[in-house]
Nucleic acid binder design. Structure first.
Lengths: 241, 241
DNA sequence: CGATTTATTGAATCGACTCAATTGATGTGG
DNA sequence: CCACATCAATTGAGTCGATTCAATAAATCG
């Protein structure tokens, strides 16, 4: 997705490379399917072109935790080139199109396209920050706060990728997905969403989320957007497109 | 600490650079002191030479979550060069000595010392994996499992750094620290530790932890060491020291 | 040695869970 | 296009893990 470029503002040459990379070796997956499994030894990095996916881990007894969400434009695993095998799985939520990026591509990038390299670097650091914030959420926030926080985060990320319409966006997650992501039971997710609706902090039906007053939802979730680093240094390196 | 080298096995030249880097610009901190605060804009990366520290985040109302622990040999924040400001704080647990590593140092490394660069890269990827595992713990594991898991993780990491003696190691954390890290209350941490002691899975007194049967503790915590990636690719790049 | 932090224990409470059943949507094949 | 099956969302009731509050014991520190 060309919205990945949102991050650093790229030159036409940069765009060309990305567009080419995104076009080569595209694979399509149905919904609710695994792209990679714990224990695999993948050779490529994946770029999500469209659709939602998630990273998840599972215990032997079946307990499952969604550890992060991948939205269009996100890059799955830069670790591939250093770590031997996957310590988690990647599964789709909706139908997903991904581009497989080779090691060669990354070497080409880091050699000749510093702005893209910085953007990738930034991507991966923000992902770490998001992971920390999830730790915070799961450890300290109440169910209500946690849900509000997650919805804020997704909305912000989608907006950055140009995937919102005014105060609304798609939310293809089921309540079971939200449960796996927030560490709550399905039943409690349902009740928490009802509370949020009752407080008129969200409107949610037909896989579409509306946030009438983002400010108030942020307060409810103790949401501070600093960890998304949307003011990243890259902006200074902008090329004059 | 030279145990950082454990990861990739370094050549004498590699060691020399590291030793030099570790010697320059060393700072010492007392226990329970902040090294960096949320909102800061640090210019250097920190390498922990000795002592324990942690990364933590705090909500306005005071709730605090320890998001990761830093042990001797750990590197604090490679993000410094790309992200504008800290989205979390770093505080010491024990007295700590750190070496400040400059941007120049990292450029020198990535240009001339590929093995070290790989080791750093590996470090940061493993840290991400640890962060994911914490998400898993906080989301899905019970208090008992969570505690067992955390103690396993710390023991493995310390052992990799050569900081264990047989089945024992130092554990300078207070129960309040463990509470902030596991997302439990202090009281419940206390009770959980008692349970682990009663089950003879751990011995813990005077800041010293003993694990008579690591296997059993791992089972209790549903601990799978794969996420620590101790079999990283770097071993293949070992120099013949 | 008091003073303060850390660890421990008890009792009551509550947030979130489990179990179980119902309603509503979505989808598929005949 | 309906009938049946499946999956997703909702509701109620009872339970339990973990919390809070509060007090005491033990350890550490200047």
């Amino acid at each position: 997705m060309r919205k990945l470029e949102q991050f650093v503002r790229l030159s036409p040459a940069d765009r060309a490379v990305l567009t080419r990379a995104a076009a080569e070796r595209v694979r399509n997956f149905g919904p609710r399917v695994d792209i990679a499994r714990e224990g695999d030894r993948p050779k490529d990095v994946h770029l999500i072109l469209s659709g939602w996916a998630c990273r998840y881990k599972q215990l032997e007894d079946g307990r499952r935790q969604i550890v992060s969400f991948f939205l269009p434009g996100d890059i799955c695993d830069l670790n591939v080139f250093v770590l031997r095998e996957m310590d988690h799985s990647i599964g789709t939520i909706t139908p997903v199109a991904i581009a497989d990026l080779s090691r060669d591509f990354f070497e080409e990038i880091s050699a000749g396209y510093p702005r893209i390299a910085t953007a990738f670097w930034w991507e991966s650091l923000v992902n770490s920050a998001i992971q920390r914030e999830w730790t915070m959420s799961l450890g300290q926030r109440t169910a209500y706060e946690r849900m509000a926080h997650l919805l804020c985060e997704l909305f912000f990320r989608l907006r950055l990728a140009g995937l919102t319409r005014g105060d609304s966006c798609d939310l293809p997650l089921t309540q079971a997905d939200l449960a796996d992501a927030t560490g709550l039971s399905k039943v409690h997710v349902n009740r928490t969403l009802q509370e949020l609706r009752a407080a008129e902090l969200i409107g949610l039906r037909d896989k579409s989320l509306r946030i009438p007053n983002l400010e108030r939802l942020m307060n409810a979730g103790l949401f501070n957007a600093n960890y998304l680093h949307m003011d990243h240094e890259g902006r200074q390196l902008d090329s004059n497109e």
